[in-house]
Amino acid sequence: MRISKMRGVASVLALSIAATTAGAAEPAPAPTLWSAAQEAGNKAPISAQTTAAPATGNPRTDSSFFKTTAGRLSLGLLAVGLGLTVYSVGHDRKPVKSPVR
């Protein structure tokens, strides 16, 4: 179990590092969230998810997103996270059955 946990952590870190590289390789010249915020007079807070109106032609609005590195990485991370969580449900929990149950 310890090996599985370590593997999960390593996967997340490795994929996070890959994200930096992958993001840099993307051809889209869209502005960064930071620069966009600056351009907007710094009115917009930085949030966990960008919820503003979609930009026309942004590949994150259709299935072509999954052909990008970021899209594949997202799916991969989600699968890893979901897998670890499901594994945790089945294996981390110590069996408990009290006499009064």
Partner: peptide, 11 residues
């Protein structure tokens, strides 16, 4: 510490 990535990704 925030690393800017192309697009609106935030790492």
């Amino acid at each position: 510490k925030i690393f800017t990535i192309k697009g609106d990704h935030r790492l």
